[in-house]
Amino acid sequence: MIRPANIPRLLLTPAILTTVVTLGVCLVVLLVLSFGRQNYLDIELGLSAHNFELALTKPLILKLMGKSALIATGVTALSLILAYPIAYLIAFDIHKNKLLWLILFTLPCWISYLLRILSWKLILGYQGVVNSSLMGLGLVDQPIDALLYNSNSVVIALTHAWAPFAILPIYVSLEKIDRALMKASGDLGDPPYRTFLRVVLPLSLPGVSAAFVLIFIPTFGDYVTPHLLGGPTGFMVGNFIAMQFGASNNWPLGAAVALVSMLTATLLVCLFIAGSKRAVRAIG
């Protein structure tokens, strides 16, 4: 006989298994692996901190980690700035067919990430849309190769891919704001931009923070975009990790770098969110 008190736990078990437990096993395996050592094709498990030492001191890894952090920060900041007005527009200016507009502005989020990045390769490529158009118009004599295979192209494509993701959480938190609060602020003599800074922005902060996490984490560890568009200078830490599990065949090092970069990303997210809360409070 199933006791009624156990029903919710029973219902929740499958979901916990497919998410939390799987994730836990993933992390444990990475941890076990990271203390081991690659011996040609075999992995010797052990308790060596060698890989963590490498992950925290090797200049290449540190450089990639730094670049990933920089690119992820830039992409996230750009995405938030670009998406905020759209979320604001849908929340406050659009009254008819709100839902439809919301879907249209966020639709690309759900469409194949790979294909959206591919489309930028077509646009920015050596013989791509931009270059062929510029040449066709006679503005340049030969293709500009600076467009592709560097950090800039990675930032452009990533921002384009992730900005729509920021709209939804920001919109949700804006929609929750009591319209009377904004009127009250105006009524108390605040001009619109002050109302925005002192009422709307602080109240939408939960949405902004959610968007931050949603974008920062995946861009920090991204693999597809740098691979397709980055070239040698756009290489990021995600590519390094993937390489250790592929061509470089050093799984323990890959596992250690994966863990370190995961922790770094989480730490940075926490720092940024705490910082933004403080900044907004300072404005108010």
């Binding site: 799987t22 994730l23 993933c26 992390l27 395996v29 990475l30 692996l33 984490i217 995946p218 920090f220 560890g221 991204d222 693999y223 995600g238 990790i241 993937a242 250790q244 599990f245 799984w251 890959g254 596992a255 994966a258 970069s261 995961m262 990303a265």
Partner: peptide, 12 residues
């Protein structure tokens, strides 16, 4: 978790 990390972990 970045998908790359999940991917290599599951692979492991």
């Amino acid at each position: 978790l970045p998908t790359v990390v999940t991917g290599v972990a599951l692979l492991s």
